[in-house]
Amino acid sequence: MWKDAYYGKVALILSVAAIFFYLIDHPSGVPNGGSWLGYTYGTVGFGLIGWLAWFGIRRRRYGGQGPLEGWMSAHVYLGIALIVVATLHTGFRFHWNVHTLAYVLMAIVIVSGIFGAYTFLRYPAMMTANRAGSTLKTMSAELAGLDQSCRDLALTFDDETAALVVAATQDFGGRFTFREIFLGRSVNLVEGATGGAIARLRDQVGGVGNAQPAEVLPLVQNLTKRATVVVKMRRDWRYRAQMLLWRAIHVPLTIALVLALTIHVFAVFYYR
């Protein structure tokens, strides 16, 4: 928290003041961006978008005024205040036009930014907790070792069982899905190849096969252990992906937003 959320207070005052003036103002007709208050919101919003977008360039430079940490804090808080100012600027009037397009782009940029800020606040700690002292490298080595021993242990069983176990050692839960990356749903390996192999092995004891429990048990244990490691590694990568992916929305749409905003301002002054 930079200097007791100094910019948080600035943003709060800005938002409260904007809402206050909106409530006491009675423009003729419906509230809209063309009244004096509407122009004021528009000008403040335009300035904020320009300044917030400038942060993207500023953060890549060394030096300059003030610590980058302060800029970052202001970027987040004033970005949230922007959605208040811009919404009041619209007067809650939305249509299929370039004006609403600019608003929607802005809203997506801000929401993605809030998500990004959340990931940077929460995820480093969650990643540390997930790894529980190990690193991705040691987890990989552990996984490779488990796979090797699974394959070795599988040699005792018939071709079909062995093939299932080998398939299970190649089960990493498949591709990342949208649900997993953005909604945090972990994959369930028990429903995949790993589950199939374990079920087959269970049948080997007293079922179709005549294997001894002592032969099956270590293999099942290893498969289960490796599934746990895979889920952990996957989660680690999911956190990394989330910390990177929001920016793939935030940055390109900021550029599109600045363009739509320029067209919006041009259009409303072209047809005054």
Binding site: L143, A144, M233, W237, L245
Partner: peptide, 11 residues
């Protein structure tokens, strides 16, 4: 194999 696992989940 361990090395390949490192990048296995790269998004």
């Amino acid at each position: 194999q361990a090395k390949s696992y490192m990048g296995r989940f790269e998004v």
